[in-house]
Design a binder for these strands. Structure first.
Lengths: 201, 201
DNA sequence: CATATTCTAGAATGAAATTCTAATGTGATA
DNA sequence: TATCACATTAGAATTTCATTCTAGAATATG
């Protein structure tokens, strides 16, 4: 079998350069308002190169989105592994979100403001698979505590909004500069609230 | 004094026709993907008229957004007036949101998916004023219960995310068709969760 | 080295947002 | 009623920008 013409070694690097340039543009100018030329200028490459690697502007945004979500998710599963109680788990979900958003503020701003991306079918499928795998793992982690009666039994689709919704909402606020209190300073408040909302009492 | 050149009577109507057409387009095709021509065709008007009334595509979106938010807000203040306890108030905030989103699903979908709108400075200022007035009223309504010790004392900016964040998050999920359980069926769950998160215990 | 394939480049194309110019409608005033 | 000032409508012209196309340079494999 022929393996000729495999991706060049430098390709991954070029991709990263483009993604970084795109993120900076999206952040400063907004997704809709940045042009491919602006991305090209910042990445110091050609239009052809942009389209070769990502196919379209939405392709660039999709890749950025998927990379970001994957990083966020991976970090949570990592930390959840070291948790020993329902309360510890719930608080970790909230606090990890807060930490990640604080650490990756620019990327987080992009993720949170990008409900507008018109994902191509393949990207949509990839995202769906990522979410399924991730939330499958999270639910299987928490399941036992519900069974044991340490957490309320609720309609399954409501756990995530109840636990993550508030800090996500605040993150949007903070990232858009409409509040002065840093996310890190109020993360514990949201961790408390989440636990109070789902603990069996 | 001259009052020549006042807005024509029919103007408000034309504006509404355009906004309705735009909302339908945005909902079916997406904000980014709908063209001014599509809006024009649906509204049965000219390009010139579109630009005369709204200045740009984002102008159309901004107007739609502001109208929607105003309606949502007004409804809440109305209902809050008839509430007599902290619990009643908190539950009403959540349930009104659920009712409104259910009733105005299309408009709600637009509002929730439109973090992407690049508001012009005037629209931004108008929105800010609207938010200030609204949340001022809401906070003044709830303030006494915090003072009386019936609700937890929390950093002020955290109440809204804690109370509204979860149902808002779920609304996004439901409106985008990613969950089968209607919002109306789980609204009470979110009302419970909100009250449990902020009640003094 | 030969060759298949990836990658880069930038000009050409086409679609769509926006601008522009002219005409028409409308209400207020004399 | 006639006229004026401005609001409104219209659609052609322009501009901007995503995307496509064609060709050449680079790279990996046999």
């Amino acid at each position: 079998m022929s393996r000729r013409g495999q991706p060049n070694v430098a390709t991954g690097e070029r991709r990263q350069v483009i993604l970084a340039a795109a993120l900076a543009c999206f952040d400063e100018i907004g997704l809709a308002a940045t042009t491919m030329e602006q991305i090209r200028d910042r990445a110091r490459c050609s239009i052809g190169s942009l389209y070769h690697h990502f196919g379209s502007k939405e392709g660039v945004a999709s890749a950025l989105f998927i990379d970001g979500i994957s990083d966020l998710n991976a970090g949570l599963l990592e930390r959840l592994d070291h948790c020993g109680s329902a309360e510890d788990g719930v608080r970790t979900v909230v606090l990890h979100y807060g930490d990640w958003v604080t650490r990756q503020a620019t990327l987080a701003r992009f993720l949170l403001h990008s409900r507008e991306i018109h994902f191509a079918p393949e990207a949509k499928a990839e995202l769906k698979a990522i979410y399924q795998r991730h939330f499958g793992a999270v639910f299987s982690w928490f399941g036992r505590f519900v069974v044991r009666g340490e957490m309320k039994q609720l309609p399954p689709e409501t756990y995530i909004p109840i636990i993550s919704g508030p800090i996500e909402d605040y993150a949007r606020l903070w990232l858009s500069g409409r509040t002065s209190t840093p996310l890190a300073e109020v993360a514990e408040v949201f961790a408390d609230a989440a636990w109070n909302a789902v603990r069996a009492r």
